[in-house]
Design a protein around this nucleic acid. Sequence first.
DNA 1: CGACGCTTTGAGGAGATTCAAGACACGTGG
DNA 2: CCACGTGTCTTGAATCTCCTCAAAGCGTCG
Lengths: 249, 249
Amino acid sequence: MTSITSSSISTTKNTVTCTNCNLDKFCIPKGLDRFEVGELALLVNRNNIRQKGEAIYHAGSPFRGMIALRSGSAKLVSFGQHGNELIVDFILPGEVLGFDGLATQTYNCTAIALETVNYCHLPAHKIDELVTQKSCLNHLLLQRSCSQFDAQVERMMLNRRSAEERIASFILQISERLKQRGYSEMDFRLSMTRDEIGNHLGVAHETVSRIFHLFQSKQLIEVKSKHVKIIDKKELFNFYTTYSLNSPK
Amino acid sequence: MTSITSSSISTTKNTVTCTNCNLDKFCIPKGLDRFEVGELALLVNRNNIRQKGEAIYHAGSPFRGMIALRSGSAKLVSFGQHGNELIVDFILPGEVLGFDGLATQTYNCTAIALETVNYCHLPAHKIDELVTQKSCLNHLLLQRSCSQFDAQVERMMLNRRSAEERIASFILQISERLKQRGYSEMDFRLSMTRDEIGNHLGVAHETVSRIFHLFQSKQLIEVKSKHVKIIDKKELFNFYTTYSLNSPK
DNA sequence: CGACGCTTTGAGGAGATTCAAGACACGTGG
DNA sequence: CCACGTGTCTTGAATCTCCTCAAAGCGTCG
């Protein structure tokens, strides 16, 4: 089909760079100008593949750089001292991971593909170069890292809420994040199991199942195994903001 | 006693600077060399006082800089949309706060004194200057901010544990932090109420009370109102690492 | 000393977990 | 193409942890 020049042995699909990537608004380039993105494009390894269940990086291994998922999703897992594992976050297509290794230069978590993923990789040593050259990138990283703070507060708030509220918020959060990356916000497939959702939210997987069912019976969503369709977003939202609790004093 | 020169109207106590401050290993200067600390000393406002219950800064107000508690302690509070308030963290004497405003340049939380506090204040605009001049400070801030990530994981782990484990870990954490600043690690006074502890840990204040009592009956600690004495640190530690749970799969 | 806030202690109940068993889905090999 | 096996999901029942409500002790400060 396409003519193959000496400088390009890639297929049409593979000619995607940071400049024309549809993720550029969300990825590392966010906040950089056109020229800078061009530079960035030269530094990024594209088209890395991992199959379901394979690790993208391992906890304890040296920081190798930041990762942007071009397709597929992943989970970020932290292993406690007693074999208990905790899913710190899910990474959806178009999102960036690797922040858990930025500060210490060692990954704190293991990133595991929940389905086949295709990702870009910005190597660590190139990040250092960029950071010293472009203060904006520096600022950007600082910003992103500090936004962890907000996330933490948000999560603490969630942890005092009932299982129903947690799951309502989980569904809405996934919906919101998918929407931001241009996917359908009302109708999607969860790539993680009930067990993984439960682990992340701190509830038993049976409870996840039960509450999905409950929401369906209340006409808030339709669930069929991993497929979720949001019917009444507003009511779902009310569900987890209205019934608040544990507000001391 | 001391001769008073025109340039010094301060008492002996007030002549403490960053250079001779006993907190310098923990405070903002950490990682800076002697000369840089000297520079820093010129930028810092010292000897600010707040009484118990008074705010050091308010959520929503513009970032005014970083704060180091020279004495006294504080709580960092986040207000939810429905009047529920969440104690994100306690700040012990010698610790630094203000990270919640660093990224967005607006404080996300309100910092309230739990007892009379004396603090140093590094103004925001001077931080900017320093950051652009000294890349190490920049790195330092990034480091600190990213360590939030670890804290978040730690807290998520705690949230799947029983009330007993949470409180054991709380006591040990406070002990450890006091120790690091040179205070007694085995015998201290909690500056916060049971209510505040419970809020922070996500348990009812009655439960806090009961479990303190339980630990006392097990000869792990001695409690008398706010005063805590650790009797069997090792066993207390086992308490919250041995009985782990909820490890999925 | 009296008031107020904090802490302790008890009793009852709600929500979520755990255990157990069956249904469903998916992929593999016959 | 169907049978089979494994992993996932659902549903029920019993149990337990922790919360809520209530009331009484304790301490502190004006």
